[in-house]
């Protein structure tokens, strides 16, 4: 029982940590701020999920479960909202996009609203 628990802890912690690290790497490597936001919002959410579940399995008390669940709920709401509001204000501030971007319908629509789909 203890051995299973330890293996589960290690697996969860390692997967969480690797996703956090990949998210940080993505902020260095990807070409423009929108792609970096993709990396940060997705990887840090799943990374926190793995780390918190690992901590709960290792600590194993009801209080740890409650706190981890609250943090998780907060992370799952806050990470997308934060990246959304950051992308929105960056677009409003005229952030130039990667030169391989195909089209930008938000810039086309700014001002008037489209009637076609």
């Amino acid at each position: 029982m203890d051995a299973t628990r330890e293996i589960a802890t290690v697996l969860l912690l390692v997967s969480g940590l690797s996703f956090m690290l990949i998210g940080a790497w993505g902020t260095v490597r990807l070409p423009d701020a929108y792609h970096r936001l993709h990396a940060s919002s997705k990887c840090s959410t799943l990374g926190l999920l793995g780390l918190l579940l690992g901590a709960v399995v290792h600590i194993g008390t009801a209080a740890a479960l409650t706190k981890a669940l609250l943090t998780l709920v907060f992370a799952f709401v806050a990470a997308p909202v934060g990246s959304h509001i950051l992308a929105r204000s960056a677009h409003a501030a005229g952030l130039e996009q990667w030169d391989r971007t195909l089209s930008d319908e938000l810039a086309e629509d700014q001002g008037d609203h489209p009637e076609d789909q």
């Binding site: 990667w98 971007t101 089209s103 629509d109 489209p114």
Partner: peptide
Amino acid sequence: SQTPRILR
């Protein structure tokens, strides 16, 4: 290999 767009 991305081919990004902003869609509505």
